[in-house]
């Protein structure tokens, strides 16, 4: 919303429902328009916004009289319900547990890997990172810096521009040899529209699975993304078999409302949340906390 300070959804709704409590009938068409504007502004997208407003109207109708706190609580409940429909636990019981990290360019894959590595190694598990982003300039050095910050092993490509699949293979091989618990494979950012690059992901998957099953394929999504996030998820699901979402850059002003649509459309649960550039800025996904953030 141009010109206005970035208020939370709740603050905005409070502003629109100022003070006195209203009956359901007291909610004017304008209030609903404002709710729509707020939801759209949080990147929920037109479809999900329509659905949410429909559900809200129904619930408000059932409840009859409603004040602004109820209105907010109701919205939060609806969001929580929708967000918690899927299981958001990371499955890392295989040994080694292989995590493949994928996503479009610049969403924060490498940073996320650094954080996940730190998190897992702090839980007492050994970790090795496979630097399979052999495309972007200095990507290997970047992930190596994160590996040393997290105090975990790294498998680097032996030469420039090496086939990422072979780096992934060597990383799993390393883990099997050294009995490392968790393998995290970094991949180059790729736009989901590039067929050849998406095929490359399928190949990486195939090559890894020759040695060990893949426990998790995490798709990293940037919270500032708009409705394109849904298409990204669909494409990556098709080519890489994504099992979980990581939502990054939630420390900014973007709300990341589009993930609701992603979850609904693809059935892939959100598993992790990134909230900054520090190595500890990572949280497990909690529907309650996330819904509260959306309706702060």
């Amino acid at each position: 919303m141009s010109g206005t300070p970035r208020l939370g959804l709740g603050a905005k709704l409070k502003a629109l429902l100022t003070g006195e409590s209203r009956s359901a009938k007291g909610l004017t068409p304008d209030s609903w328009d404002d709710l729509e504007a707020t939801l759209l502004g949080a990147d929920f997208g037109p479809d999900v916004t329509d659905e949410l407003i429909g559900t809200m109207r129904q619930r408000v109708g059932q409840l009859g009289a409603i004040d602004d706190d109820d209105f907010l609580r109701l919205l939060r409940e609806i969001l929580e319900e929708q967000l918690s429909r899927f299981d958001s636990t990371l499955r890392l019981s295989d040994r080694p547990a292989v995590i493949l990290v994928v996503g479009v360019n610049g969403v924060g894959k490498t940073t996320t890997i650094g954080k996940v590595a730190k998190f897992i190694s702090h839980a007492g598990r050994s970790v090795v990172i496979g630097a399979a982003d052999t495309f972007r300039a200095a990507a290997v050095d970047q992930v190596a810096t994160w590996a040393s910050r997290a105090g975990v092993d790294i498998v680097r490509p032996q030469q420039d521009g090496q086939d990422p699949s072979s780096v992934a293979y060597q990383t799993v091989e390393f883990a099997l040899r050294n009995e490392t618990d968790v393998v995290i494979i970094d991949t180059a950012g790729r736009l989901h529209t590039k067929g050849g690059l998406m095929d490359e992901l399928t190949k990486i998957r195939r090559v890894i699975e020759k040695q060990a099953p893949i426990s998790e394929v995490l798709l990293v999504l940037d919270a500032t993304t708009g409705q394109n996030g849904v298409r990204q998820a669909e494409a990556f699901l098709e080519h890489a078999g994504v099992t979980g979402l990581v939502l990054t850059k939630l420390d900014g002003s973007a709300k990341g409302g589009f993930v609701l649509a992603v979850q609904e459309r693809t059935g892939i649960p959100i598993k992790l949340i990134g909230t900054g550039e520090g190595i500890d800025d990572l949280q497990g996904f909690s529907p309650v906390a996330f819904a509260a953030g959306l309706v702060a």
Partner: peptide, 8 residues
């Protein structure tokens, strides 16, 4: 690809 946050 940025969403509504573009303006802010």
């Amino acid at each position: 690809m940025i969403g509504q946050d573009a303006v802010a």
